[in-house]
Write a protein that binds this DNA or RNA. Structure first.
Ligand SMILES: [Zn+2]
Ligand SMILES: [Zn+2]
Ligand SMILES: [Zn+2]
Ligand SMILES: [Zn+2]
Lengths: 168, 168
DNA sequence: GCACGAAATGTTATAACGTTGCATATCGAA
DNA sequence: TTCGATATGCAACGTTATAACATTTCGTGC
């Protein structure tokens, strides 16, 4: 029990290619379960984001989808898909980059905590239940009701740091 | 000692009018100490922000300063002032609002933690050293070096909640 | 005071991001 | 198949932020 909780509380997920089909399947199943349409566009947007492995902007998605569909799409199309995916918890907006990433734990209610590398652009999602509790405590002292939490930690990732140390 | 640390770690500051002149004086003194120019524009931008009491956008600042100076200013003017004020730690950008607020603790190295009310727009800054330590621990596990921390908690503030409960 | 480099600001244009409003098409259930 | 609800197409516009280059102001040494 203890190790399980530890893993869940402090899980670490790389947005890697291996997770693409898994992420899509999960989203599709959830939509079916909720009676919502997992349309071609919505699927494609989510797929691009899983494949990318880093936060990706709306207009870059627009270009990628234009390629994929063989015709130009317009901004509202992408923004509407992103809105849907965010509402369903499949996608989180990265405020510091005006960009979007798939959520690594769409099945759990949590504060997404992102580590974002300024050099390679990769992002890593973590959960930290203890930190959530601390903020909830602050909120209690303020009489504040928290609806949404944005936690984005920027800096340099392990691989960029090691490159920096060795290769210069 | 213990109570003092407690206060500093979990201090709560309302961006109230009372702090305007204090905030400006402190910024001016710090600039002098660092051999930097606290120019009319920089001062005016910071003053508007302290007076506002809530996150304020660059283009709204632009309009306010246009009024104040009796001539239209251009975006780069305001953005350059904001950049300077951020570099000096006097101002923090609120990523979720594309807006800016004065930092409540410009003299301390810390992660600014903001509670932002969606209804009245007011923001409250807090420090939470324990949460900072937890994220640092996560970073250690990832081999990640944190350079910048963005923590923004959105929801409803105490006064808005009480209004909601009573007056409807 | 004057010369000079550094810092700050002025100015114009444009990039990047996001939304509104309305028309059309598609879906899902009666 | 009809009909309301949902999703998409499309054009225009609004907001936020930056690039590039000219000009002014500041601070220092002469
Ligand atoms: Zn998440
Ligand atoms: Zn990296
Ligand atoms: Zn602060
Ligand atoms: Zn409020």
């Amino acid at each position: 029990m203890a190790p399980v909780n530890t893993i869940l509380d402090r899980k670490l997920v790389f947005h890697s290619l291996g997770a693409v089909s898994e992420g899509l399947r999960m989203a599709e199943a959830t939509c079916q379960q909720r009676g919502l349409q997992f349309t071609e566009i919505r699927r494609s947007v989510l797929e691009c984001m899983w494949q990318s492995g880093q936060p990706i902007g709306a207009y870059e998605l627009l270009r990628m989808l234009g390629q994929k569909f063989g015709r130009p799409l317009s901004p509202p199309t992408v923004y509407r898909a992103l809105e849907f995916l965010q509402e369903q918890g499949f996608v989180t907006r990265i405020e510091t980059k005006n960009a979007f990433v798939p959520c690594a734990f769409p099945d759990r209610d949590h504060a997404c905590v992102f580590f974002i590398c300024d050099q390679c652009g990769n992002s890593f999602e973590v959960q930290n239940a203890k930190a959530e509790a601390l903020f909830e405590e602050d909120a209690g002292n303020l009489g504040f009701r928290i609806d949404k939490r944005v936690i984005e930690l920027q800096g340099a990732c392990a691989s960029c740091l090691s490159l920096e140390a060795t290769g210069n």
